[in-house]
Simulated scan of single mutants.
Amino acid sequence: MTDDAAAPSPEILRYAAFATRPEGGNPAGVVLDASGLTDGRMLAIAAGLGYSETAFLTPGQAAGEYRVRYFSPLTEVPFCGHATVAAAVAVAEHTAPGRYVFATAAGDVPVEVERGADGLLRATLTSVEPKVEEVPAADVEEALALLGWAAADLDPALPPRVAYAGARHLVLAVGTRARLARLDYDFDGLADFMRARDLVTLQLAWREASEVFHVRDPFPVGGVVEDPATGAAAAAFGAYLRDRGAVTAPVVLTLHQGEDLGRPGVLRVELRAEDARVRVSGTAVAIR
C-alpha cells in the first residue's frame, strides 16, 4: 500500500459544472490520475477542497476508459453527476473531445464530450438503469418536519418517491417557487434521516412549465448544506417524472439550480422512448 506521507501530491483541477462561468454551477475537484492514492488520501483531498465532490480517475486498459471514485468532504459516494461532467471536460481538455466510459461504483457510465458553437465543452452522461420506489408515509412526514415544511406545501401532482439513477434521492415537489426558495433545515437531523435510508440528497423541485423545473438538493450526509447543481439527482428526477407519467418520452427537460445560492446553473435532462436510462448534459469551465 502507498505511504500517503511519502506519496507525491497529485495535480488537483477545479471546474464549475453545469455553468458557463466559474462563479456559477457546482464546483468539483478532479484528479486525472489517482493511481496509488489510498482511500484516506482521497478523502483528505476532498475535505481540503471542501467541494460537494471530487472525482478521482484511474486510467483503464483501453483508451477512453477510466475507473472513477467520488468523495465528498465526509464520505465516498457511489456516483456524482456534476463531478462526472467536470471530469469528462477535464479529460477532453487534456486529450481530445470524444467518448469515454467511466467505471463507477454504481456501474459503467458512458460520457460524450463535444465542443459547442459557443466554444465551450459540453459533457453528456448516460445513467445506469434507473428505478423509482414508493416512500412510507411516516418517512415523508419526518422529512417534512426536518425541512420545516408542511404537507400542504407539496404538489399533489408530483407525489414523493425515492428515485435512483446511480444514487438514491428522495424527491419532494412543492407547489410554489416561494416555498422552494425558503430552505432552512435541521442539518444534523436530516443527515441522520438520510443515512438511515441510504439517501445521497433530497431532490426538492418546483415545476415552472411542462418541461422546466427549479430544483434544490440538501446534502448534509456529504458535509455540505446544499449542492448547487446535482447531475445524479437530475438523472434520478428524470426517471421519476417518466415513472409518474408527468412527462412523455422522447423529451428534453431543463432544470435550473443554484439560483438561490448565487451560483446559477442549467442541467439538460433527456429521456428517450427506446431507452430507460437518462442522459444528463451540461457545460463545465475551469476555475483558475
Rank of each mutant, 00 (worst) to 15 (best):
231 G>T: 07
157 A>Y: 11
190 L>I: 12
184 D>H: 03
167 A>G: 08
175 G>T: 11
198 D>K: 08
226 E>T: 07
195 R>W: 02
167 A>H: 00
229 A>V: 01
258 G>N: 14
260 D>Q: 08
248 T>C: 15
157 A>C: 02
242 R>Q: 10
194 M>I: 13
181 A>V: 14
228 P>R: 05
161 R>Q: 12
211 E>K: 12
224 V>N: 05
168 R>D: 12
151 A>L: 15
241 L>Y: 12
208 E>S: 09
250 P>Y: 09
248 T>W: 03
223 G>A: 11
216 R>F: 00
162 V>G: 04
232 A>C: 03
265 G>H: 02
177 R>A: 10
226 E>L: 01
263 R>H: 03
155 D>W: 01
153 D>I: 08
264 P>H: 06
198 D>C: 14
261 L>D: 06
159 P>G: 10
177 R>V: 08
153 D>L: 04
177 R>H: 02
163 A>P: 04
222 G>I: 14
212 V>L: 09
254 T>W: 07
172 L>K: 00
209 A>M: 03
194 M>Y: 03
260 D>K: 04
206 W>H: 13
167 A>N: 00
185 Y>H: 11
171 V>P: 01
241 L>W: 12
163 A>C: 06
183 L>F: 09
260 D>R: 06
233 A>T: 10
237 F>C: 11
234 A>M: 07
240 Y>P: 05
209 A>H: 06
242 R>K: 09
231 G>E: 09
171 V>D: 00
258 G>K: 08
259 E>D: 12
266 V>W: 10
237 F>N: 14
228 P>K: 02
250 P>R: 13
178 A>D: 04
243 D>W: 15
191 A>F: 03
250 P>L: 15
163 A>R: 00
264 P>V: 13
250 P>H: 03
173 A>P: 09
210 S>F: 01
232 A>D: 02
266 V>G: 14
237 F>R: 02
239 A>C: 06
234 A>S: 11
155 D>A: 13
258 G>S: 02
222 G>W: 08
189 G>R: 13
232 A>P: 09
203 Q>D: 04
262 G>L: 09
197 R>D: 12
215 V>E: 15
232 A>Q: 11
180 L>V: 05
202 L>M: 04
222 G>F: 15
237 F>A: 13
200 V>C: 13
237 F>M: 03
